[in-house]
């Protein structure tokens, strides 16, 4: 059976590191990076990309709309 897999792209310059997406992710894919962006925020990134199912919860809750979500089925 084909497995649903997803991926997210965080616009790290727009991210304010609020970590609401980290909290909203049901599969613990996201985390705040130890590095900061030019504004000084620890931006969100895919720490465990293999766990992403592309549910888009992170994108939906993001107040700064800096997350784009993709989903497909793995062959």
């Amino acid at each position: 059976m084909a497995r649903v897999i997803g991926a997210v792209v965080v616009d790290k310059e727009e991210c304010k590191g609020c970590s609401v997406c980290v909290d909203a992710c049901p599969h613990d894919v996201l985390a705040l990076h130890f590095e900061v962006n030019s504004k000084g925020y620890h931006y969100s990134y895919m720490k465990s990309p293999e766990a992403c199912v592309g549910c888009a919860n992170c994108g939906v809750v993001c107040p700064d709309t800096c997350i784009t979500v993709y989903r497909t089925k793995a062959s």
Binding site: A7, T65, V69, Y70, T72
Partner: peptide, 13 residues
């Protein structure tokens, strides 16, 4: 292979 336009499910309006 995932980050393709046809797989897009959520983006900024």
């Amino acid at each position: 292979d995932i980050l393709k336009p046809e797989n897009l499910v959520y983006q900024k309006t």
